[in-house]
Nucleic acid binder design. Sequence first.
RNA 1: GGGGGAUUAGCUCAGCUGGCUAGAGCGCUUCCAUGGCAUGGAAGAGGUCAUCGGUUCGAAUCCGAUAUUCUCCA
Length: 868
Amino acid sequence: MDCNTIRRKFLEFFESKGHKIVPSAPLVLKNDPTLLFTNSGMVQFKDNFLGHSKPIYNRVADTQKCLRVSGKHNDLEDVGLDTYHHTMFEMLGNWSFGDYFKKEAIAWAWELLTEVYQLPKDRLYVTVFGGDKNDHLPTDADAESLWKQHIATDRILYGSKKDNFWEMGEQGPCGPCSEIHIDLRPEAEVKNQPGKELVNNDHPQVVEIWNLVFMEFNRKADGSLEKLPAQHVDTGMGFERLCMAIQQKTSNYDTDVFRPLIDFISLHADLYRYGTDAKKDIAVRVMADHIRAVAFAIADGQLPSNTGAGYVIRRILRRAVRYGFSYLHFKEPFMHRLVPLLALQLKDVFPELHQQEEYVARVVHEEEISFLRTLEKGLRLIENYDKTISGVQAFELYDTFGFPFDLTSLIAREKNGTVDEKGFHEEMAKQKSRSKADAVKETGDWILTGEDKKTEFIGYDHLESEIKIVKYRKIKHKNKELFQLVFDKTPFYAESGGQVGDTGVIESVNEKINITDTKKENELIVHFTEKLPESLSSVFIARVDQPKRELTKNNHSATHLLHAALRQVLGKHVEQKGSLVNEKNLRFDFSHFAALTPEEIARVERIVNQKIRENILLTEQRHVPIEQAKAMGAMALFGEKYGEFVRMITFDPKFSVELCGGTHVAATGHIGLFKMISESSVAAGVRRIEAVTAEGAQEFVNESLALLTEVKSLLKNPKDTAASLQNMIEEKQTLEKKLDTLYQQQSNVLKDSLALKAVKKKDYTLILDKVTVPNAEALKNIAYALRNQFDDLLLVLAADVEGKPQVAVMIGEKLAATNQFHAGNLVKELAKEIDGGGGGQPFFATAGGKNLSGLDAVLTKAALLISQ
RNA sequence: GGGGGAUUAGCUCAGCUGGCUAGAGCGCUUCCAUGGCAUGGAAGAGGUCAUCGGUUCGAAUCCGAUAUUCUCCA
């Protein structure tokens, strides 16, 4: 059975059991402070379990793109070393939200595995939760007795809290779980040792394939458990592992999920045959695995970067490049060539990659080039190191120059040297604790003050409303206390879609509290404040900062017009890749492969301003079925999670139709004026435009004009300002050069006159004089020029340099070789006469001071010192 | 968000603990040699040492700030 059939059969099976098949959520999460990536199938339903929103369907199934790079069972650095860990994988799952529970979940799981997939019953084991004293929980007897209807009693095993009690995090919904394991070893081995002894023992051939979680509790911040009002089922089955079991392979990488990638990599690694060299195999697996994670993350809108989720993507890609570089001799960018293959392979399941294939490959390619450059630089640095490399050095290479530690040790070994690994890890630990100390954050439990229900957002129509506080909690960060409030309804817009959150106040009869920000946690609208209201149960008037909201609206609507204009001018490949809209300006990132020409910029700006003058009325539709919206030409963004119903914002159905939750002007005329401030690049294939509107644009134009007026007036209002300035700059350069030559000539004259005064002594030619020179540079020049003239020169010049005393001592080449005089020592002695200090090299030294009248004394003293 | 680096000629970079008049390779200009050249030789042009401020007799070098950029950690 090929992998596509396996996936299809899973979905068909649950569809036949009354489940709604939903699409995978994006890999990258936007509104969840606790998580960077979707790491399991249940993430997109988190709000349903937490009770923040009601599910639309109570039975759902899907295949979900997941990414795991750290956690109790997974670490990025382990992936590829063995044959079963992955960064990105698909998780098949079925869910019940307060609908069916353990009985159906267990029966269907068994039916699917043994009847649809025909997995051998005598190789399956199941585990149930064996209870936990600390949590005062008994064995999961329900699951136990249900399993007994399907499977022999001796194939049921009992697991501890660690293996059989599933928790979302330190807080939140949780419950006992029941896992299905399969023994894939050859017959002989099975006879030797029963599979049940190997379950949950990290054996690569005796593995868990399906986890059925029965969510019935909520874990509170103090660690105690509370029964949930409704019970849910959450299951997850690793797709790649399931394929291995059904296709009777010994590794996930041997299935047809990975094989095409592996073959392509091997082909281009000098026709390497996979399976013939353990180290090279690891490299091949790393590359095959990592390209999936990287490509899908980029397709979902996450570019590699140096912070947050983007940094994780960068690390994954770099790890793959590193392995290819070290073990398969890929010295040129290669990973990007895997993108088309992967896109084609998953075209029907995850079309987002196929649709953005060129863009994704380009980003990967650019990132590869940049890392190979980093490697090259590191290699050059490491050449200058001793063959024993200290931990501090290795860490500096890694931390400052991004040079991977394993490459450092590889190179050290090649030179028969060593690296202090312990020292390296110590340095790393220091770095980590520095960062952690900065990031500590304590989050308290939500405390209910009213009936817990979903907040109604009324901010599209109202900027002011009576509200009640539903719940609140305390956040501690860097010794600062913050409170988060949730209302029954709110006019405050929570940051999303690039638009900043509203600020404002809530006010009761007795008090007035500032709301400093509004954010979303998944679907929950959270208001931030520094002060907790005293009477939490009062009725408050919530009031949004209106001027700020108005200015923000201008910028948001302008962003839509800009997006549409860009597509008109540049082409349909322009897709939004990021957006920031606040009261001051707007920033819009989009896919496009070249810098905009001044003409393109002008055209885009002209179109946007024309649309503003047309004063197009806003058409806002709040509840359109997603399919209908798409049919009407609305652009859905990659990496954005849309519900069944969407909000549509239209400014002229022929011009701009977008799915958007933000706030907008009633008619485009409100925007007033649109002015682009800058156009730049953020990453390969992504451009950024910054612009201002309304008052901001007016201010910008006024300031620019004022500056120009000032410049013009300084130049005495020339006909052509730019040319006049250009002239002036050129003129200045010529003058500087002329002045230079003039000084040079002066110095020459002075030098010649000094040369005439030279007195020939027995061992040397003495020049001792007082001079006036324009700058220190000239003094130096004269000294060097005289040195070229007399190889037995002994020169002492007491100079007046722009009113400051300076002394120069120069000793000719031949004389210097005799070590008879030391310019540095001499000048130090002489400097005393001018209340200064100095030094230099044995043959040339200078000194400066404060006492100009001491110059004569310098010469007298010099004569004395020399004659000694 | 918190660290660590880097910024020197058109490009890639040297320049050790402050002091040889800031260098190399490539590229550029001119000239010479060969029938031709990704050729050889010679000469030459090109630098506010990112910006601003400080320490010092003296700063590319030390200190601080800003900008740009690379990199690690969260």
